[in-house]
Each structure stands twice: as C-alpha cells, then as structure tokens.
C-alpha cells in the first residue's frame, strides 16, 4: 500500500498532466513535414527534471514504475474498445500486421555494420539483434550472461530506449509520416515495434498529425504492439539472433582479411 500512499508523487504527476495538457500541442514545420510537440513529451521531460529536484524522493521514482505498467494496461484497454467496433478492419489488415513484424530484422542490416564500423566487437550483437526491449534483454542475458560483451551491448540499447525511446519515436514518427511518401497507416503499424510508451508516443504523433484517422491509427498501432509483445522474442530467438551472429562473423572475417592484406603489403 506504500504505492498508494505516495501522495506527493501522485500530486506531482497530476500537476504535470494538468500543466502540459493546458499548454497543448505545438507543431514546427520542417520543409514539407512537421515535428509535433505533444503534452506527453513535455510531461516526460518535466518528470525527468523533477527527479533531480528535492521534490522527488528516490523511493518515489521507484514507486512510479508500477504506474507506468498500469497506465499502459488502461491504454491497451482503450485501444481494445477502439478496435472492437471495427474488428473487421484489423482482420482485413492481418497479413500486413503479421508480416511487418519481420521489419524488426531490418535493424540487423542497418545497425550492425554501423556498430562494427564504430569499433564495437561482440557488443554489437547484443546491440543490434533486436530493438532491445525486456524480452530481448532477457534472451541475451540468458544466452550470454549479464557481464558478457553481448549483455553490455543489449543493456546499452535498452537504457537508451528506456530514457529516450518515447521522445525519439514520437518526434520521428510525425516527421517521417509527413515527409516520406509512405502512408500514415504503414507508420501506424510500425509504431507498435517497441515498448508501450514508445507505441504511445509514436502513434500519438501520428494521430495529432492525422486526426481524422485516429481510430485506424490507434487500432493498427495497438494490434501491432500486442503482436510484437507476443512474437518479438521468438523472432529474436529463431531468426534475429542467429542472423546477427552470422552477419557479424562474416564482417569480422572480411575485416580480418583486410587486416592481413595490409600487413602483407
């Protein structure tokens, strides 16, 4: 019951919510696209700043965690009741929803070469095999142990995602949906790739940019997120991680050859 009695935490959150909702949404044009600043982004930043003031006790920061989890359950319930009346549209979009999960693998081809070029060794496997949410962290730690290079790698991305993921996805999704030729509904599905708060921020920006499509965006993002949660780890186990390992060895061999050649010359 300690969580409930932390009235100072709840009062602070209420104040943050009222203030940020009162300020409202702003948009900045970037060429043909827009970056949206939503109340939820101010809220995460104000919350972070408050952590470093005496207003927030260290225990409160820990007490805040279950509220994120419970808040996400309410959000998912809301998305459920958005989907329900139009369940047909989700079933119709089923093939796209399932197959876009494979998009998670694209990160291996894009991020692994970058990580290796930047000089990461086996850390790069943990870093780039997936989007590094809780199930993936569990998988890597289970397979390589927490103190392995792979474990350090996955933790780096996990920490980055925890701190910066929501803001990163939120700012980016609205911008990409307005400047790229891809349809906003495709980005709605892509919004579900990460954690609940990443999905919230990414789809929130899309909704703010395309308010007429609110229900469809929320439905696609929510369904995609549920799918990622349930299949993400298996995709990592059977495809993502083996693929990353293979690609990494290939790149190492190539670099090894290069190094040998340079020596020989």
């Amino acid at each position: 019951m300690e969580l409930v009695k932390d009235w100072r935490l709840h009062a602070l959150v209420l104040l943050i919510v009222l203030l940020t909702e009162w300020v409202g949404t702003y948009e900045i044009g970037v060429g043909p696209g827009v970056i949206l600043f939503l109340p939820m982004f101010y809220a995460i930043i104000i919350g972070l700043i408050l952590y470093f003031t005496p207003l927030v006790k260290k225990a409160s920061a820990k007490n805040a965690e279950p509220f994120i989890v419970l808040g996400v359950t309410l959000l998912i319930a809301k998305i459920g009741v958005i989907i329900g009346p139009d369940i047909g549209t989700i079933i119709e979009a089923g093939p796209a929803l399932v197959l876009q999960e494979l998009g998670n693998l694209a990160t291996v081809f894009i991020a692994l070469p970058v990580a290796v070029l930047l000089g990461f060794k086996r850390e790069s496997i943990g870093m780039t095999h997936s989007i590094a949410r809780e199930p993936n962290v569990g998988l890597i730690i289970d397979k390589y142990s927490f103190n392995s290079p792979e474990g350090r790698g996955v933790m780096a991305i996990y920490i980055f995602g925890t701190v910066f993921g929501a803001v990163f996805f939120g700012l980016l999704s609205g911008l990409l949906a307005t400047i790229t030729p891809l349809n906003v509904l495709s980005f709605a599905m892509a919004s579900g790739v990460g954690s609940g708060s990443m999905m919230t921020a990414a789809s929130g920006s899309l909704i703010a940019a395309f308010p007429d499509l609110e229900n469809q965006i929320a439905a696609y993002a929510g369904a995609s997120n549920l799918l990622s949660l349930s299949t993400g780890m298996y995709l990592s186990i059977f495809v993502g991680l083996p693929l990353t390992e293979k690609l990494y060895r290939l790149m190492q061999r190539r670099r090894g050859d290069d190094a040998a050649q340079t020596k020989g010359e």
Binding site: P39, M40, I44, A64, E65, I82, I159, A166
Partner: peptide, 30 residues
Amino acid sequence: LLALATPILAYAGISIGRNWADFVQLGWRS
C-alpha cells in the same frame, strides 16, 4: 487516447531519472 498517454509518460519521466547516470555513461557511439 492521448489523455491516457500523458500521465504514463509523466510517471515514466520521474522513473527514468534512475537510469540517467547509466544513460550519460553510454557515450556517443552507443
């Protein structure tokens, strides 16, 4: 939907403060 999102991220903001020290240690390459 967005009204449910704002309090989630307010709690998240307060809670991620705990990860901040680890976060700044990651370095630009990460």
